[in-house]
Design a binder for these strands. Structure first.
Lengths: 276, 276
DNA sequence: CAGGGTGCTTTCAATGGTTGGAATAGTATT
DNA sequence: AATACTATTCCAACCATTGAAAGCACCCTG
């Protein structure tokens, strides 16, 4: 029998607390410490948040710095390096769609002059790939590289509606998150909404916080007909009639899809695909 | 039939060829394999290019995939993942300047309607952080995430002119790279040019390849007065009088600098600073 | 100017994660 | 069916990895 008595909590009463974790995981956990609020960190902060001894952290960080994944500031703190940005720019679902979509985002931006967003789905959230905003636009909700919920944003609803059936069910079963400013939908209504999004190619959501805004989003398809990204605009509530926004966003999204090799069906009923 | 690979790798005389390299370095070298031309790779390709046995590569890749640094496509190939993009978006010299500069880049883009570029220096090259291009613009020379030389591009000259003295000397001593389409400057002229760039805040270069274009660039300063980025436009030669382009670019660059906390001196002579 | 605190760096012996050849399974090509 | 290539699993030797301890460096405060 494969008796592994190690099953209970591994408090590692011995001498080596967290030993046993693969080196790469540790190195990556150091990268994961960085966030919107933590862009420059000292060695001890990194060691503390990544839960490892300072000497260990130092050794790993030294390698990351040597490669360029991290950079060291004059004051000794560490920040994410340009080299990592460089590699990340090769991410198909990151810069890939972005590169193709950007000109169309700009066209759309010219029309509305507020916010234009581009996002892809990563697991149970939407990751913002691009955001164009006027300098005097309404308050910003999300930043590029940040994450947004799937169920309570227009851009997220589009991604959810385009996800594979099994994933959708998983999300639908989950209890609604309570979020201020948006009215969370019960399961039944959410199902109907997703169906509408698939049929019309448009999702729309009103927010009251941080300011009264209307968001309209539309899916971007790849050559296989899978929803790979979501395009959205956010404007102050009442600034533009919604029946104008919808077609504009959908047209832009279609233009991007066409550029990705998507052949629009004669009629509707676009198949959904699994992802990753 | 090919015989035993005895004649192949000369140094690997022992049993363990490349053993001894830190794990992180190996993992990072896997990431480094990806490039503009290689965005989706199989396991064996990754192993080959990173020069490591397939089992080793597989093990490392598995960790990277688990974290999200890489993603696996349906056909088994690997691509750079969104998670890496997410972390990279926290890079101050990457997305950092970009975020602040973007609105001004857009303003400038509206005027010229061709290419607007934003770059930072990484070692001996310029790394393109952002590029706005019209759909019908002239041929593109560089892509976001790509690298450009310091001496033969306007955007690079600005970064070189703003680098610390010691670094500049290193570069100046280097023999001129031969590049088609631009006339490489001898050391003396290059020195004079850099001095001019510092004084006027403008660099200009004409290219004949891949098409006849004029590039104009201007430095972006941080609160400490160091050159942290370079802003540039690229237009077809003859489309716009250069004496119009210069002030426009410089004005946009200054606006960004101001947003970074830079206090413009009354007179000229901005001090240069060392970097990382 | 001691004195205590915090954070960074180096050292070093024990050790367990790491390693890659070999074998196996899977897939495309001839 | 044979061939060639790629992907994956296995495992025992081994060396990179580990982190406590100690040494530095640099604040503060009394």
């Amino acid at each position: 029998m494969t008796a592994t008595p190690e099953t209970d909590t591994p408090p590692a009463r011995g001498k080596r607390p967290k030993q046993g974790e693969p080196v790469i995981d540790r190195a990556l956990s150091l990268l994961a410490v960085f966030s919107d609020r933590r862009r420059a960190l000292t060695l001890s902060e990194l060691a503390r948040y990544a839960e490892m001894p300072a000497p260990t952290a130092l050794r790993l960080i030294a390698r990351l710095v040597a490669w360029g994944a991290l950079e060291r500031l004059d004051d000794g703190r560490y920040v994410v390096g340009v080299r990592l940005w460089e590699v990340a720019s090769l991410s198909p679902r990151g810069h890939g769609v972005r590169e193709i979509a950007l000109p169309y985002l700009e066209d759309l931006f010219e029309v509305t002059r507020h916010h234009v967003l581009l996002a892809v789905r990563d697991n149970e959230q939407a990751v913002l790939i691009e955001r164009l905003s006027a300098k005097d636009a309404t308050e910003v909700a999300y930043r590029v590289g940040g994450r947004a919920p799937l169920r309570s944003t227009a851009i997220g609803l589009v991604l959810l509606a385009g996800a594979d059936q099994q994933f959708q069910e998983t999300i639908l079963k989950r209890p609604p998150e309570i979020e201020p400013g948006v009215s969370e939908m019960p399961e039944g209504q959410l199902r109907r909404t997703l169906s509408d999004v698939r049929r019309t190619g448009i999702a729309m959501i009103r927010r009251s916080l941080p300011s009264r805004t209307v968001s309209v989003a539309s899916p971007i398809f790849d050559a296989q007909g899978a929803v790979v990204a979501s395009l959205s605009i956010v404007v102050p509530d009442g600034s533009t009639p919604p029946n104008v926004l919808g077609p504009a966003v959908r047209a832009a999204a279609r233009a991007v899809s066409r550029n990705l090799g998507f052949q629009a069906q004669a009629s509707a009923d676009v198949r959904t695909h699994s992802q990753g």
